[in-house]
């Protein structure tokens, strides 16, 4: 048997064995448990912080506002739809109320006239309707049909 083929064979066997050894040591342990992926990644995806807490959380302190909202047209709108949670790790729940100048922009998100918007949502042309004034000067956002004037 030619030395040639013998030595090549040997190098090949060596290479394959070393490769398989390396493969087994470098593949993460949980790999392949449920499929071709690292099963621990499922738990990794569960770890993230949740910022949105849900309406029930708000009512623990703000039940009066919740009751007001419940009886008016914004009952279907969650607290956090308008009051997005501000990220503050030191506080259990800190809510960021829309800044006074901003109510126009905020309310327009849903209520600006748009042909594509369903008619159940009252829509108006914000420029024409009391132009420049903030919505909350007349409307209570938690009970929008209770006008202040």
């Amino acid at each position: 048997m030619p030395k040639l083929i013998f030595r090549l064979f040997l190098s090949f066997v060596l290479f394959v064995s070393v490769f398989i050894l390396i493969q087994n040591s470098l593949t993460p342990d949980s790999f392949g448990k449920y499929g071709h992926y690292r099963a621990d990644a499922i738990d990794d995806n569960k770890i993230s912080t949740s910022y949105y807490k849900g309406e029930e959380n708000c009512t623990t302190c703000h039940e009066d506002i919740f009751d007001l909202k419940f009886n008016d047209l914004h009952s279907g709108v969650n607290c956090e739809s308008c009051h997005s949670p501000k990220i503050n790790a030191s506080v259990e729940c800190e809510v960021m109320p829309p800044v006074i100048e901003g109510t126009l922009k905020l309310c327009a998100q849903c209520h600006e006239t748009n042909y594509a918007r369903i008619k159940i949502v009252p829509q108006l042309n914000f420029k024409e309707h009391e132009e420049g004034r903030n919505c909350i000067e007349c409307h209570n956002p938690h009970a929008p049909w209770e006008l202040k004037e």
Binding site: P28, Y37, R38, A41, I42, D44, N45
Partner: peptide, 14 residues
């Protein structure tokens, strides 16, 4: 991958 409960997820470390 698809998790056993049907959500397609990404393994960020891999």
């Amino acid at each position: 991958f698809i998790s056993p409960d049907g959500v397609v997820l990404v393994d960020e470390t891999y």
